[in-house]
Nucleic acid binder design. Structure first.
Length: 569
RNA sequence: CGGGGUGUAGCUCAGCUUGGUAGAGCGCUUGGUUCGGGACCAAGAGGCCGCAUGUUCAAAUCAUGUUACCCCGACCA
C-alpha cells in the first residue's frame, strides 16, 4: 500500500486519556479510534494487525479439527433462561428489547447459542467429537473499561467449543486445544506462560490461562522454577507443613489494644511480628454468615473462599453488618462466637501454635488462642499465594511471581451447559447420554495490545514479524527523479515477491517519515535516498536494531527476503 | 457501585479566581524558501466553550441539574 493513499492518522502528542503504553501507541500510530468508553473503531493499520492474529488463530484451530462458524451477536433471552444464566449473569450482560418488547442480550459469550445449535443436530455418538469456533464481536458491559483494547466492552474474540461423548474425550479435546494455543502464541512471537486458572462464572473444573508476560499486566502468576508449576495466584496451590511441633500450654488471655485495628498496628503495639497475628474477615456466602481467618500478612482470596465453601456467591460484609452480628471491625475474632456463624481458617494457621485474634470487644485482642481448643476451626486453602510461599506441587521451591496479561483461557466444562439445555446423544447401546463440553477463548485485540506491551521502545511499537501490519516500510526520501523511479520500481518488485510493504511515497521531510515508521513499528525499513543511491545502494534497517545495512540495488530483494525469514525474527 | 477529577478547534492545553470582541502550540489549506531524524516565513480555514435551566443589561467564566469521559477502589470469560 502507498502511505499517501491510506488512512493513517498518526499523532505526535500522547492523547490525554490513554494510560498504558499499548493504548497510547495504538492511538498515536493511527490504528484505533475511540467511539465510546471501551468501544473502538479499527482503522486500516489496526485491522491489519487483528487480521494477522485472526489468521494464525484460524490456521491453528483448523489444524486441530476446528470448524469455523459464525453466530449472532444478538441473542434471545429465552436461551439464557434455559441455561439459567439470564438471572445469574450480572449487569455485564447488556440486555435489550426488540420492537415487540421481547428480551434480548448482546452475546458476551456463546455457550447457549452453540449448545442449542449442536444439540439440535447431534443425535448419535457417531457424530462426535466435534469442535466449532468463531471469530466474532463480543459485548460485555464492564463496570470499568480501560486500557484501550486491553479491557474493552466491545471486543473481538475467538471462541471455540468442543463436544465429546465422555469425559475422556473431552479431556482429549482440551489437551489438543492446549497444544494449539501454545502454537498460536508462539507463532505470534510472544513470551507467555500457560497457568492453572480459576473457572469463574463460566464454570467447569479444569482450566488454564495463557498469560503474556508484561509488567503492566493485571494478573499475578505464581511460578515454580523447580517443578515448572505455574498458576494464577488466585488458585496457586500453596504448601503448608501439616505437623505442629510444639503446642501452646497457656490459656488464652485478653490484652488491651486501644485503637489498634489493623494487624500491622496490633503487631507493632504488642511487639510481635505480623505473622503471629490473625486477620479476621466476615463474608456473606449464599446468604449465610462466614468468618474467614488468615495470617495477618496474608489476604483472604474471595474466589478460593467461594470454591472452598462450594458457594455460588460470596461478598464482604459491611462494617455495619459485622458490628451487629459479631462486634466492632478491627477487633473481630473467632472465640465465643455465635455457633450459627461458620468459621473457616486458612491452612497456614494450622501450623501456628497459637494466634493473636480480636476479642469482639472494642480495644481488646486475645493472645494464646489455639485452634480447635478455643474455637472450632475448619482448615481450608483461603489465601492468595504471596511472597515466600512454597510451591504446593513439589513442596521444594518458593514461588517466583510474574505479571501477565490474560490473552487466552481454556475450560473443561463437563455437562454444565449440556445438562440444563438437554444436549444429548444416543450411545452404541441406544442409551441417552449428555454431551461433554469444553470452551476456549482468545482475545484477538487483547493479544495485539499485549504484543505492544511486550515489544516497544521510546519511539514506538516494535512488532513481532508475525503481527506487524506490514513486513516492510519502504521509505522514499525526497522527490528526486532517480529516487522516485527506483523506489517505485522497488515497490512493484516487492509486491511481485509477495512482500507486504507500506510504501511511504508522501512528500514529507525525512524526519517525519522516519518518526512515523518507528511509531508504526514494521520490522524492516528500506530507505531509498539520493545519498546512497548515487553509489547504487539501498539502506535496510531492522526496527529492533540501530544497525543500518547498505545493500546493492540488484540484490536488495534477496536481502530483504532473508531478513523476513522466520529464523531471523 | 463507592471515592476523586475533567469536558474550550482534529491533538495537547491556556483563559474561569475578579462576568463584557474566543486564545496558543501542534496538525490542516495556499504560496515561497528548505529537504537524510518531527524545518522556516507569510496568508488562511476550522469553535452554539459537553448539554439544560437559572442569576444578570451581559455567562466559557457565577449557581443548580444533567450527561460524557478519565483515574483509584470494588467487580470481572
Amino acid at each position: 500500500m502507498r502511505h499517501s493513499q491510506m488512512l493513517i492518522p498518526t499523532m505526535k502528542e500522547d492523547p490525554a486519556d490513554a494510560q498504558v503504553v499499548s493504548h497510547r501507541l495504538m492511538l498515536r500510530a493511527g490504528m484505533i479510534k475511540r467511539v465510546a468508553a471501551g468501544i473502538y473503531s479499527y482503522l486500516p493499520l489496526g485491522l491489519r494487525v487483528l487480521q494477522k492474529v485472526s489468521q494464525i488463530v484460524r490456521e491453528e484451530m483448523n489444524s486441530v479439527g476446528g470448524q469455523e462458524i459464525l453466530m449472532p451477536m444478538a441473542q434471545p433471552a429465552e436461551l439464557w433462561k434455559k441455561s439459567g444464566r439470564w438471572s445469574e449473569y450480572g449487569p455485564e450482560l447488556l440486555r435489550l428489547k426488540d420492537r415487540k418488547q421481547a428480551d434480548f442480550c448482546l452475546g458476551p459469550t456463546h455457550e447457549e447459542v452453540v449448545t442449542e445449535l449442536m444439540s439440535d443436530h447431534i443425535k448419535s455418538y457417531r457424530q462426535l467429537p466435534q469442535t466449532v469456533y468463531q471469530i466474532q464481536t463480543k459485548f460485555r458491559d464492564e463496570t470499568r473499561p480501560r486500557f484501550g483494547l486491553m479491557r474493552a466492552r466491545e471486543f473481538i474474540m475467538k471462541d471455540a467449543y468442543s463436544f465429546d461423548v465422555d469425559q475422556a474425550g473431552a479431556i482429549c479435546s482440551y489437551e489438543k486445544m492446549y497444544q494449539a494455543y501454545w502454537r498460536i502464541f508462539q507463532r505470534c512471537g510472544l513470551r507467555f506462560k500457560a497457568v492453572e486458572a480459576d473457572t469463574g462464572s463460566i464454570g467447569g473444573n479444569r482450566s488454564h490461562e495463557f498469560q503474556v508476560l508484561a509488567d503492566t499486566g493485571e494478573d499475578l502468576i505464581a511460578n515454580c522454577d523447580h517443578c515448572g508449576y505455574a498458576a494464577n495466584i488466585e488458585l496457586a496451590n500453596v504448601f503448608v507443613a501439616t505437623d505442629s511441633s510444639h503446642t501452646e500450654e497457656l490459656p488464652y488471655e485478653k490484652v488491651l489494644t486501644p485503637s489498634q485495628k489493623t494487624c500491622v498496628e496490633v503487631a507493632d503495639f504488642l511487639g510481635v511480628s505480623i505473622d503471629k497475628t490473625v486477620k479476621t474477615v466476615l463474608f456473606m456466602a449464599d446468604d449465610k454468615p462466614i468468618m474467614a481467618l488468615c495470617r495477618g500478612d496474608h489476604e483472604i482470596n474471595e474466589s478460593k473462599l467461594k470454591k472452598a465453601l462450594h458457594a455460588n456467591w460470596a461478598r464482604l460484609m459491611t462494617d455495619e453488618e459485622a458490628r451487629l452480628l459479631v462486634g466492632p471491625t478491627g477487633f473481630l475474632g473467632p472465640v465465643g462466637l455465635n455457633p450459627e456463624i461458620r468459621i473457616v481458617v486458612d491452612r497456614v494457621l494450622s501450623k501456628m501454635p497459637s494466634l493473636i485474634t480480636g476479642a469482639n470487644q472494642q480495644d481488646y485482642h486475645l493472645a494464646h488462642v489455639v485452634c480447635n481448643r478455643d474455637f472450632p476451626a475448619e482448615f481450608l486453602d483461603l489465601h492468595s499465594a504471596t511472597l515466600g510461599d512454597i510451591c504446593g506441587q513439589c513442596q521444594v521451591s518458593p514461588f517466583v511471581f510474574h505479571r501477565g496479561i490474560e490473552v487466552g483461557h481454556i475450560f473443561y466444562l463437563g455437562t454444565k451447559y449440556s445438562e440444563p439445555m438437554h444436549a444429548c446423544y444416543l450411545d452404541e447401546k441406544g442409551c441417552e447420554k449428555t454431551i461433554e463440553m469444553g470452551c476456549y477463548g482468545i482475545g484477538i485485540g487483547r493479544t495485539a495490545a499485549a504484543a505492544i506491551e511486550q515489544n516497544h521502545d521510546a519511539k514506538g511499537i516494535v512488532w513481532p514479524l508475525a503481527l506487524a501490519p506490514f513486513q516492510v516500510s519502504l521509505v522514499r526520501l525526497g522527490q528526486d527523479e532517480e529516487v522516485v523511479k527506483t523506489a517505485d520500481q522497488l515497490y512493484r518488485t516487492m509486491l511481485e515477491n509477495n512482500i507486504e510493504v507500506l510504501y511511504d511515497d508522501r512528500d514529507e521531510r525525512p524526519g517525519v517519515k522516519f518518526a512515523d515508521h518507528d511509531l508504526i513499528g514494521c520490522p524492516v525499513r528500506v530507505t531509498v535516498g539520493g545519498r546512497s543511491l548515487k553509489e547504487g545502494l539501498i539502506e535496510v534497517k531492522r526496527r529492533s536494531s540501530d544497525e543500518v545495512s547498505r545493500v546493492a540495488l540488484d540484490s536488495v530483494i534477496t536481502y530483504i527476503a532473508e531478513q523476513l525469514a522466520p529464523t531471523k525474527v
